[in-house]
Amino acid sequence: MLLGFFDIIVLFLSIGISLLIVVPLTGVLVRFRANYNPKALQLDAEGGAAPHTGPVINSYFSMMTRVWRLEGISGLYKGLMPTAISTFSVTILLLIFMETPKPRHGRYRAPEASLLGTFAYSIGMMLVALPTAVITYRSITTPHKLGYLELSKSLRVLLTPTERKKPWILYLTPGLLAAEVLHIIIVILILSPLHRLLLPAVVNPELDPTDISVWKAAVYFVILAFATIIVAPLEVIATRLAIQRNHASSEYNSVAQEVEGDGEETVEYSGTDEDVIGLRHEGDPYTGLVDCAKRIVDEEGIMTLYRAWWVTLLGGLASAFT
């Protein structure tokens, strides 16, 4: 079913309005999960013990307040352009190539297919979206002001020379693909079949949506809560790995940051020398998914893996009952 001109205008207006709401909330979430807050003393340049001087933020809303105080409204909308470009591009492709009589922003389902077909589709969509996600996360966490229309300059800030010459190296970021694939396996191959089994009235439009068994819904909620115990750390790990830049240098290992030839003259947010978040030193990077999880637990504590876990749980509930 083709959409009329008026329907398309309304659709894109609704997307724009939703972006104005979603982008600040997502930006705060990314920064909260990316903030590096070691619990132990750090070694200074001379090998002596020195306390960590970075910001200590213990909640999502504390991070939101901090972003507003230090960077204002423009700081809350960091990451707007890559998010908007990605969202509008995907929407246009869906309108052109897929039969979507009632497309809605923020939620789209894979085409009706077998379980493995849906899994393959999800993997494909993840691979297409991964570079944009990496750029979005980095644009959110950078202390630099990036112009909304200065694409080339922004890419020089966010990507290393190696990444600009070999964009495919983003897929080789240690542990990132593994974290994303595990996330999809849990959602598509485990939660999705259980969702269809326990809440068929929600999945099948031919059934009465009010005909939902209370005890089956309760069982699914328990399953979703246990899944959150695994999925929430994967989301934190994926955030940490996405902002870890790749380079090739004989002086450092394969994922350490290049020291020279990688800078770009940019303006930082004025009014304070205080950074919104602390970032782990790129000279000692995570080398994979397991290494990232282990170092987070050892350096920052296990609860760091569960930052904003309630966002993951609420997202699962929203997906299950809408």
Rank of each mutant, 00 (worst) to 15 (best):
S249E: 10
A232D: 06
Y220A: 01
L241D: 02
A227W: 04
I237N: 00
L234M: 08
A227Q: 06
A232I: 01
E251Q: 12
T228W: 03
S250Y: 07
V236C: 06
S213T: 08
A232C: 14
V219S: 11
T210M: 12
T210I: 03
I243T: 10
T228R: 02
Y220K: 02
I243Q: 00
A232Y: 00
A248Y: 13
W215T: 14
E251N: 11
V222R: 07
H247V: 02
T228L: 08
L234E: 03
Y220E: 03
Y220W: 11
R245K: 14
T228Y: 04
D211I: 04
L224A: 15
V219N: 01
I237R: 00
S249T: 13
I212A: 11
A242R: 02
A225P: 00
Y220R: 03
A225Y: 14
F221A: 15
T210W: 07
Y252H: 12
A242M: 08
R245I: 07
L241F: 12
D211V: 07
A217V: 01
L234R: 05
T239Q: 03
L224H: 01
T228S: 12
A242D: 05
I230F: 15
E235W: 08
A225T: 15
F226K: 08
V219I: 15
D211M: 11
R240V: 03
A227C: 10
I223N: 03
A232Q: 13
A248E: 13
A238Y: 02
A227M: 07
L224C: 10
A218E: 08
V236M: 07
W215M: 13
I237Y: 01
A242H: 06
T210D: 14
A248H: 11
V222P: 04
K216T: 11
P233L: 08
Y220M: 15
T210G: 10
V236A: 05
V236T: 15
S249R: 09
